[in-house]
Design a protein around this nucleic acid. Structure first.
Lengths: 210, 210
DNA sequence: TCTTTTCCTGACCGTATGGTCAGGATGAAG
DNA sequence: CTTCATCCTGACCATACGGTCAGGAAAAGA
């Protein structure tokens, strides 16, 4: 009980509250969209007064921007799983694993990202044009190398990447639809494993890697 | 010129204005989301005074509901292309063609649909539980039949359907991202053909149909 | 022509929202 | 203990939004 009563240090306070706000914001933005989300809703979910949100984040846009940036970073981090692989089976397999795991662990983040892109990427357009474009070019070259080495069938690398993004993110973005078709229940551990296996098998066979 | 000046009949007026409003609404809802869209924006895009919108559609929700229903009907209509096919190559091939065409011709509708589902389907939950579930069950059975007949590999029919939806709709919902990665230009006719071919080839090979 | 029905719209209203601010509370520094 | 910087928040404000309504315009019907 001494631990709960101990006064927080400045840096702890700041970090704790920012995290609290960002988590609440991610959820509310995912559920209601940018326009439908209100600072009051986010404040209530974070358990803080609304004015306190404006102390840490000057505007709703600034808060939203931070949420989107956080997601993009998670996304980028997982993107590394494709490198350091001898071939498509390991590389693309690991990438599918990583992205499916994100869909499961951060469905709200995925939805905010999808929403942002669908609305024309008003906030992260510069990221799309720099970081994402560079990443895509690099991985397309990697896939092309695998094709040249005869490790997989001749496919268009960019469309393969789109298929990877679409298929894996679908389990987060359309999770509600999947849940409804699953009898209203969220996927169980076993079902998630089956989903991952299905996606991996179909895609790896689809690109002639197995 | 007599045609333009001819006074419109009642029914014509009603139909013309409803269409005008629904088209504008689809675009605005797709661009801004339900919460971000305003009746004023829709009215401006339709070229009508705001009060006129409320004459035809009592509330913003009612208008939105009609937009979503329209999309669902287009979607259902295309869904028939999978039937009347002797096997997966023709059936799933035709379905991919149809869905890619919808992504190209009705990207706004696709976005509104995606947004609706992402936010928990507040408006079309009943459709998901009835029409969509029935449709899914039926097509899953069809796919299972093809598997039993040895026309394709043993895959989970539901996850195959998810992959079909995800991959084809991605070209509409994430069209802005694709456009950005395409150097800022929309896909050309040839690029759309290449996309369709890539998707069809990868999926049909992925399910062992070719 | 006269009446009825439908269509149209400027002006208006109550509410909710993003954002502000003054002043108090609390931890850090000396 | 005193001073300072940071943290906190209830009350407030201007704006924008969804929706209403009275009354005029125009088509349909008789």
């Amino acid at each position: 009980m001494s631990d709960a009563a101990r006064p927080l240090r400045r840096i702890e306070i700041r970090q704790q509250n920012e995290t609290l706000i960002l988590q609440a914001a991610e959820k509310i933005f995912a559920e209601a969209g940018f326009g439908g989300a209100t600072m009051q809703l986010i404040a209530d979910m974070a358990g803080l007064p609304k004015a306190n949100l404006h102390y840490y984040f000057p505007t709703k846009e600034a808060l939203y921007r931070r949420v989107v940036q956080n997601i993009f970073e998670i996304w980028l981090h997982a993107a590394g799983s494709m490198d350091r692989a001898p071939g498509p089976v390991e590389g693309i397999g690991a990438y599918i694993d990583a992205k499916m795991e994100i869909s499961r662990r951060h469905p709200d983040g995925s939805k905010v990202w999808a929403s942002e892109v669908m609305h024309g990427a008003p906030v992260i357009q510069d990221y799309l044009e720099t970081t994402l474009r560079d990443w895509t070019t690099g991985r397309a070259a990697l896939i092309q190398r695998w094709i040249d080495e005869g490790k997989m069938a001749k496919v268009d690398p960019e469309h393969l990447l789109y298929m990877l993004w679409a298929t894996t993110q679908h389990y987060a973005d359309f999770g509600h639809q999947i849940e409804t078709l699953n009898g209203g229940a969220p996927l169980t551990d076993a079902q998630w494993r089956a989903a991952k296996d299905s996606v991996k098998t179909m895609i790896l066979r689809g690109i002639g890697a197995i």
